[in-house]
């Protein structure tokens, strides 16, 4: 999204191999339009999150949605953001507190046991939400900079759950709506490691020959 007269920002990271449009187009804006997402679309976003896989099908993720202009949840969640994020994140029309069950019940012993993949599984659900949002023209911005204990107290999050992330959702807005020091970052290009650094085969650190295979783009 952009202002009239401003060309839409192309924030895509070049890829050598085709990927889903939603993944190619996704990025994390800090400027959001003052336009509420359609409630049905918000429901689709969390429906998508609900479908995410999880270890033992534990389904550990819980989402607390805070909409600007609906009650005071948005202001209360904004107040949990770290100072740096307070500058921009409250501008998003929707903030979501994404929390995760820290332990799971063992059906063998009947006791609560560690759930090492909890944050991982929360991540899967959040990414499903992000992709669904992207497919509907919305953008999301994941936020770690907030005070989990404040959020826990503000929304009475039970002990078993850990607030893991705040997700900002909305329509991406123009960069120049942001304070000046943030505009440059908003317009800047995005950086990713190349595939050779992240895809190994045979041994740790050895780039997969897949990437050098005949027909692979340079």
């Amino acid at each position: 999204m952009s202002r009239p007269g401003e060309a839409p920002m192309d924030k895509r990271v070049p890829t050598r191999f085709p990927v889903l449009r939603e993944l190619a187009d996704r990025w994390s804006p800090r400027s959001f339009l003052d336009r509420a997402p359609d409630p049905r679309q918000l429901c689709s976003i969390f429906e998508a999150a609900r479908l995410a896989p999880s270890a033992h099908n534990t389904q550990p993720s819980r989402f607390l949605v805070a909409r600007k202009g609906v009650g005071d949840g948005h202001a209360r969640l904004s107040a949990c953001l770290s100072e740096a994020n307070q500058v921009w994140a409250p501008g998003a029309p929707v903030l979501v507190l994404a929390s995760v069950m820290r332990e799971r019940l063992s059906q063998v012993t009947g006791a609560m046991v560690p759930y090492p993949h909890a944050m991982h599984d929360l991540g899967l659900a959040v990414m499903s939400a992000i992709v669904q949002a992207q497919s509907m023209g919305l953008h999301c911005h994941p936020i770690a900079g907030f005070e989990p204990d404040l959020a826990r107290a503000a929304f009475r999050v039970p002990d078993l759950f850990e607030p893991g992330l705040i997700l900002a959702i909305g329509y991406a807005g123009p960069a120049d709506a942001l304070p000046e020091e943030l505009q440059l970052k908003e317009r800047g290009s995005r950086t990713r490691r190349v595939l050779e650094e992240v895809l190994f085969e045979g041994d740790w650190g050895l780039p997969s020959p897949l990437l050098a295979a005949p027909g692979s783009p340079p």
Partner: peptide, 26 residues
């Protein structure tokens, strides 16, 4: 999940309680 349920890991855990690397990712 649980006994007779459709979650494979539940059944695997009954057979071998150590099947799950509990401390991973902590």
């Amino acid at each position: 999940g649980g006994p007779g349920g459709s979650v494979f890991e539940d059944a695997a855990e009954v057979e071998d309680p150590a099947f799950y690397p509990r401390e991973a990712f902590r």
